[in-house]
């Protein structure tokens, strides 16, 4: 057994050495520090592959891209084996808008653009008002995808509906078709930080935004690929948003994890506008036994909405 391990190590090292030798074009020891690296004197602790804590100079750390860049066709295909779902617990929402803040920040949205809208809802005059965070529904029968003439908005096998802003022609038919008014248009040149603007567009990060194209909530598949939760989920202090995988039948808000089917059954989860046949991927839990009174959210109303209240 031991012999085996050392043999594999040897093989790996040998391969690395060969690769390094090929790359640098000379027979230097690949483990010796490169000559150009100036030691900073600052040490960092790292966990080695063997589980030991080692200390190395900071200068040896090289920035590694988070993810190998995905091709457009990989982004259009989706994450294999997943079927993303979101559950929004209306009993926990008090219109804090932390979700919106985090989302806008993470996606460098311009003022006035909100992918998440927290709506003040009241079904009838005598019924109780409640706060309803609204994301893209990532419908299984997406009306927006049906009407897009150029396949700029598309449905993936993991259930997500995303936008290719490099392809969108800006006809805005999808905005007319979406019954949830979830889509946002870039009416003018988006103001972006240089680092963001310089990136190539990715359908998974939905960044950088481009003038004359449509954008919307993307369920943060870039975070999912890193095994992390969407920004709205992690930023909500009240655990309103639960995100997960239908195939695993589990959703989590980071602190609590639920079996999706049981949660929906126990709390009578529902989807918006079921009668339209759009089959959303977002489920709502009704605002019963609430954590906060509706009124506690009023102070956070946006100025434009304050007038109508």
């Amino acid at each position: 057994m031991e012999n085996n391990t050392s043999r594999r190590d040897f093989l790996v090292n040998g391969l690395l050495a060969t690769a390094a030798a090929t790359a640098t074009g000379c027979g230097n020891n690949p483990f010796a520090p490169e000559e150009t690296v100036a030691l900073s004197g600052e040490k960092v602790k790292l966990l080695s592959v063997d589980g030991e804590i080692i200390e190395i100079d900071k200068a040896f750390l090289k920035p590694v891209p988070h993810m190998p860049p995905l091709t457009n066709s990989e982004e259009r295909k989706g994450i294999e084996g997943k079927k993303f779902v979101m559950v929004i617990d209306l009993a926990r929402c008090k219109n804090l808008k932390k979700c919106q803040e985090a989302c806008n920040h993470a996606h460098s949205l311009n003022p006035g653009q909100n992918w998440i809208k927290v709506l003040s809802m009241q079904e009838a005059e005598e019924s109780a008002p409640f706060w309803q965070p609204t994301t893209c529904m990532h419908c299984d029968e997406p009306p927006c995808v049906k009407v897009c003439p150029v396949d700029a908005t598309f449905k993936r096998q993991d259930g997500l509906v995303l936008i290719d802003s490099d392809r969108c022609i800006g006809c805005r038919f999808c905005m007319a078709a979406c019954p949830y008014s979830t889509r946002v248009f870039n009416w003018e040149e988006p103001i972006l930080e240089e680092a963001v603007a310089a990136q190539p567009y990715s359908c998974e990060t939905s960044m950088p935004q481009k003038i004359g194209t449509v954008s919307k909530c993307d369920f943060c598949p870039d975070m999912a690929r890193m095994g992390e939760l969407p920004h709205c989920v992690t930023s909500c202090p009240n655990g309103v948003f639960m995100f997960g995988d239908m195939n695993e039948d589990s959703v989590t808000n980071g602190a609590e994890t639920f079996r999706f089917s049981e949660l929906i059954k126990d709390k009578a989860g529902y989807r918006l506008m079921e009668d339209l046949g759009t089959k959303p991927s977002v489920y709502y839990l009704p605002p019963v036994s609430r954590n906060f009174p509706y009124e506690s959210g009023l102070e956070n109303l946006s100025p434009a909405d304050k007038q109508s209240h």
């Binding site: 809208k117 709506l119 008014s181």
Partner: peptide, 8 residues
């Protein structure tokens, strides 16, 4: 629209 025009 179906949903109220808010947060815009």
């Amino acid at each position: 629209p179906f949903l109220p025009m808010q947060d815009a």
